[in-house]
Amino acid sequence: MEQLVSALLIMIIGVLACAAYFYASNWLLDVLFPSKNKPADIVAKNIHITNTVRPWLFIGPALIALTFYLIYPVIESIRLSFLGRAGEEFVGFDNYAWLFSSDTFYQSFKNNMLWLIVVPTASTFFGLIIATMTDKIWWGNIAKSLIFMPMAISFIGASVIWKFIYDFRSGDDAQIGLLNAIVVFFGGEPQAWITVPFWNNLFLMIILIWIQTGFAMVILSAALRGIPSETIEAAVLDGANSIQIFFKIMVPQIWGTIAVVWTTITILVLKVFDIVLAMTNGQWGTQVLANEMFDWMFRGGGDFGRGAVVAIVIMVLVIPIMVWNIKDVNKEMEGR
């Protein structure tokens, strides 16, 4: 109870402090440079001042937070990648040299590439299939809602859910994991799935696909509904069958949206960490970059240099997407 009250109190203070900043700073600006009931030339001058200052009052806190939490760390990480364990002594390219000679890095990198190919593709594929089919049936919205649901579940919660499915009992004990129970039912040999090299990567990926398919489905479903129905009707009159309509008329029209979904999931995959940490912690050949980075950050008191190097690899992988996004938005702004 006491904890609840103190948590509540600290919450209210935090939020109010933020709101108070905006209110007070704007109030101060209007008091210092009033624009009402003053001679015209003073009004014009004050208006000019407030118009110059106010945007920065509005955007200032966000700018400071972005700088401190995202821009500065990127630069600092690059610097740290040239420093040693504690981030103090300069070691040149040692960390990079270590990285490229490290077996675990190659394994993580290879696994990450596998994740990058499988997860976005599978999620987008299932999302597109489900979006297309649910649009045709009367209970489609309920189906979509249920398939979308895993989006709300944390990676760690999802890991528990799936670990339970992959659970393995040795000997003659009844299998309580669904997957092994099915295998046994069909006469197969139960397995400790998450320890089977290579394939265990796929079992981990299934978790993320399970979560992300709903996202792909929702976006693609909206895009499909945005297709002008005249184009489909025209194709029907031209004699196309359902499959042809889907691949030749509908998919090309939502190509842009498919790309957006694909890149969004790609970015997420690069950062995947919780699932691997919870399921295997990188054992049995399932290590990925994000988990390896986390590992180096804390292992034996932490090796900041090596951690930073791994982080930079992740960063380099997202740069193409970043550049593409910025180009896109600049084009859009010029259009206005």
């Binding site: 972005l66 995202l70 760390p73 990127v74 900041f304 982080a311 960063m315 997202v318 996004n325 600049n330």
Partner: peptide, 17 residues
């Protein structure tokens, strides 16, 4: 443009600093 760029910056970059 910066905001759009920062959209995809991986958290991992920020953690150590």
């Amino acid at each position: 443009a910066a905001v759009v760029g920062l959209l995809v910056v991986p958290l991992q970059m920020s953690l150590i600093p």
